[in-house]
Amino acid sequence: MKMKAGKATGPGGVAVEMIEALEEYGVEKLTSLLNDTGEIPTDISRSVFIALPKKPGATECKLHRTISLMSRVTKILLRVVMIRIRSKIKPEIADEQYGFVEAKGTTNAIYTLRTLREQ
């Protein structure tokens, strides 16, 4: 997985280094835990929301940015789900689609339009 080591563990208390140390055994246990019940345990799905002020001394809600700290196991699960969804949706996306598609960002489309306009 593409997860950085040394980051906060989140509410679950499981660090990336712990998951990497388990290697294949950890993958098997996580897979069986999620596949047996078909539900995500509440300990894994719990997130902690923190409001950070955009400017020092901010007192209004609109002057704060909210972040969420979630379990590393949840992040791994969400990444697996995203990969599966992308593989199912990819054939349905038209060639003209830009943005949210790998190697076809909106900056590429803007560059193409500018080049066509200049010619």
Rank of each mutant, 00 (worst) to 15 (best):
M1V: 11
M3V: 14
M3E: 14
K4A: 09
A5L: 15
K7I: 08
A8F: 04
P11I: 04
A15T: 07
A21G: 03
A21Y: 07
A21C: 03
L22G: 05
E23G: 05
E23L: 10
Y25D: 15
G26M: 03
G26A: 05
V27P: 02
E28C: 08
E28S: 11
K29C: 11
L30Q: 03
S32E: 10
L33P: 00
L33I: 02
L34P: 00
T37R: 06
T37E: 13
T37K: 10
G38H: 06
E39F: 03
E39G: 03
T42N: 14
D43Q: 09
S45F: 00
S47F: 05
S47V: 10
S47T: 15
V48G: 10
I50S: 04
A51D: 08
L52T: 11
P53M: 06
K54T: 03
K54M: 06
K55E: 15
G57D: 07
A58E: 01
A58F: 02
A58H: 07
E60F: 13
K62S: 15
L63W: 15
R65N: 05
I67A: 05
S68W: 11
M70D: 00
S71F: 00
R72L: 11
R72F: 08
T74W: 14
I76W: 00
L77A: 09
L78R: 09
V80Q: 00
V80I: 09
V80A: 04
M82K: 14
I83Q: 13
R84Y: 11
I85M: 04
R86W: 09
S87F: 04
K88I: 12
K88S: 09
I89M: 12
K90C: 12
K90P: 02
A94Q: 13
D95L: 09
D95Q: 05
D95W: 02
E96S: 15
E96Y: 04
E96V: 10
Y98C: 08
G99N: 02
F100N: 00
V101D: 01
E102N: 12
E102P: 12
A103I: 13
A103M: 12
G105I: 06
T106F: 05
T106R: 07
N108I: 10
N108C: 06
A109M: 02
L113E: 03
R114S: 01
T115G: 05
E118P: 01
Q119V: 08
